Computed example of a mutant assay.
Amino acid sequence: MLRVVLAQPRGFCAGVERAIEIVERALVKYGPPIYVRHEIVHNRHVVEDLRTRGAIFVDELDEIPTGATTIFSAHGVARVVEETASRRGLAVIDATCPLVAKVHNEGRRYAAAGREIVLIGHAGHAEVEGTIGQIPGKVHLVQTVADVAALTVADPEKLAYITQTTLSVDDTRQIIAALTERFPAIRGPDVRDICYATQNRQTAVHELAKAVDVILVVGSQNSSNSNRLREIGAELGKPSYLIDDASALRPDWFAGIASVGLTAGASAPETLVQEVIEGLRRFGAIEVTTLEGVAENVRFRFPPELADSEPAEASSF
């Protein structure tokens, strides 16, 4: 009998739920097609489901017809993207996660006070590109403690840092410690910019690792927070695998083990978790339990243009 232990919390966070429902509400209110710049959230299954309903996902704004209804993804966009959309007469609905928008506001506030900004984050990630593009003035991107040692700034007395919302809490603390040691006058928010959902899911993996032999994380390969969950499991000495869905399960992962932990990144729907549970039954009898954990009840407001509308039907997720 294989014991399957579910992490709590896992899966969708409030920002992801809001972003997906923004697309659903827009499809009902304005009718398809609705254009979405980049993936609304980093999950292939979610994107494909919305595509079947009439959402068209594009990489750049020039792929969108003039005047079309356009949604910015949960990761946020640079100011130049907002300005381009305005010039082209696009009817924009902003699905940027409110916690990402909070980081943008902090960065602009520090820049307005004359401080150079250090952004702790992953190069090339959509959220990082959007954040850098929201802040006037110099933004230094650091990804590791080694990057801090190599940092060259104009004035060590006029620095501030902000962080990507989906980082490893433990890794970020180390980078912040390196920054404050090298630049004692630097200002910043400790790890408070790492979103509540990211922190809760990482804490749950720490607990999961104490109880199981192997850890499975349901999430897409381009999902930052899902990758962090897998990395944490591995750092805690447990074989850990990031999988899109049940089709990725391999029997050799479970040979000779008694228990497997199962969690999901903040952009992965619970339906995929349940499908993985069913997939595990292919390898024999299982017993499913759930760890105690934080119960999340956060909800974010919708953009005013969609506040009074509803999706035509409940999300398939």
Rank of each mutant, 00 (worst) to 15 (best):
M1G: 15
L2Y: 03
R3S: 15
V4L: 07
V5R: 05
V5T: 14
A7C: 10
A7G: 08
Q8A: 12
V16G: 09
R18I: 12
L27H: 08
K29S: 02
Y30V: 09
I34H: 00
V36N: 02
E39N: 06
H42R: 03
V46T: 07
A55Y: 06
V58N: 10
D59Q: 13
D59K: 14
D62S: 14
D62E: 15
T66G: 00
T66A: 04
A68W: 01
I71G: 03
I71H: 08
H75W: 12
R79C: 04
A85M: 09
S86R: 15
S86L: 14
V92G: 05
A95F: 01
V100Y: 06
G107Y: 01
G107C: 01
R108P: 00
R109S: 15
A112G: 15
E116V: 11
I120A: 04
H122F: 01
A123R: 12
A123I: 05
G124I: 01
G124S: 09
H125I: 07
T131G: 03
G137Y: 07
V139G: 00
V139T: 11
V139L: 03
V142S: 04
A146D: 15
Y161S: 07
I162Y: 06
I162G: 13
T163Y: 04
Q164D: 06
T166L: 01
R173W: 15
I176W: 03
A178R: 05
A178P: 10
L179F: 04
T180L: 03
E181G: 12
R182P: 02
P189H: 08
P189G: 06
T198V: 11
N200L: 04
Q202A: 10
V212T: 15
D213K: 10
I215K: 13
L216D: 01
S223D: 04
S224D: 04
N225E: 05
N225Y: 05
N227M: 12
E231L: 14
A234Y: 03
A234H: 12
K238D: 13
Y241H: 15
D244P: 00
D244E: 15
S247W: 03
S247Q: 05
L249R: 09
R250S: 14
D252Q: 14
D252F: 07
W253M: 10
A255Y: 07
I257N: 02
G261K: 06
L262H: 11
A264E: 12
A264V: 12
P269D: 05
E270Q: 13
V273W: 00
E275S: 11
G279C: 02
G284Q: 11
I286N: 11
E287C: 07
V288C: 02
L291I: 08
N297L: 07
V298Y: 00
F300H: 08
R301V: 14
F302P: 01
P304C: 02
A307I: 02
D308F: 08
S309F: 09
E310K: 13
E313G: 03
F317K: 09
